[in-house]
């Protein structure tokens, strides 16, 4: 492929009155990811470009950004694939205050995470000397394992239309984290988490638009996990027996 254009959102609050887009030309090699291209850009063309990056393999969740309007990880996106018409547009994640260029302030995201008490709350029985036995049907263990895959990249928040309108909505990642513990047979913290979850800005705000599921780079079915929480809470309200 010939040269392609990177059209990048630029904003430095200490210098710029308003945001602008800057064009860069890059020569893509096979296998070049958007993140590698950005790193090259920063080393060769423009050291003032700000973005976050660390592991470059889709596990640390640092480099979520809007790539052609969709929230994705730069390290998991091939330039060749993103540059359909010869231009790749990069913007900071929607719905978060921009600190600089592609770097956003995620404090709100972390604050919401803490509200679901995202840690194991064991029951009253003392822990055994060794490990607790955990016998789950394979499918259930897989679901639990999948839900624990979240890397906190916040792609789901940028894509969720509810999150966009309701700043107070807990949002997909926090709810997935809650589900990860609610579904863990070692956890007995439902009552403690209920205040945050069973709330108009908790699970009930989700209207199943499924954008979170689509956006998740770890292929977590966030919308499904939220539905599981809704089911559990509904069963509690209706005093039904079952998995609640």
């Amino acid at each position: 492929m010939d040269e392609i254009s990177f059209r990048i959102f630029r904003f430095d609050p200490s210098r710029d009155a308003e945001a602008r887009y800057q064009l860069y030309r890059i020569r893509p090699e096979p296998g070049l990811t958007v993140l590698s291209a950005l790193v090259n850009l920063r080393e060769e063309q423009d050291g003032s470009l700000a973005f976050r990056a660390s592991c470059r393999s889709g596990i640390c969740g640092s480099d979520a950004m809007l790539i052609n309007g969709r929230a994705r990880l730069a390290c998991k996106t091939q330039v060749a694939e993103a540059a359909g018409d010869g231009t790749v547009t990069l913007e900071p994640l929607r719905g978060f205050p921009v600190l600089k260029d592609l770097v956003v302030d995620q404090s709100d995201f972390w604050e919401k995470l803490v509200r679901v008490k995202p840690w194991l709350i064991p029951g009253p029985e003392p822990a055994p000397e060794r490990e607790r036995l955990m016998r789950l049907p394979a499918q259930q263990f897989d679901e639990l394992s999948r839900a624990s895959d979240c890397i906190f990249c916040a792609c789901c928040y940028a894509e969720c239309p509810m999150e966009g309108r309701h700043r107070a909505y807990l949002g997909p990642a926090a709810l997935v984290k809650a589900y990860r513990f609610e579904a863990d047979p070692r956890d007995a913290g439902s009552a403690e988490r209920r205040g945050a979850l069973d709330h108009p800005d908790g699970v009930w705000r989700c209207h199943h638009v499924f954008r979170c599921t689509e956006a998740c780079p770890k292929e977590i079915d966030a919308a499904w996990a939220i539905q599981q929480l809704q089911r559990r809470l509904a069963a509690r309200h209706l005093r039904l027996k079952g998995d609640a």
Binding site: G195, D198, P200, D201, G202, V203, W204, A234, H237
Partner: peptide, 10 residues
């Protein structure tokens, strides 16, 4: 608690 649930459920 429950605010949010009843409209959703009904």
């Amino acid at each position: 608690m429950g605010r949010g649930f009843w409209p959703w459920f009904l």
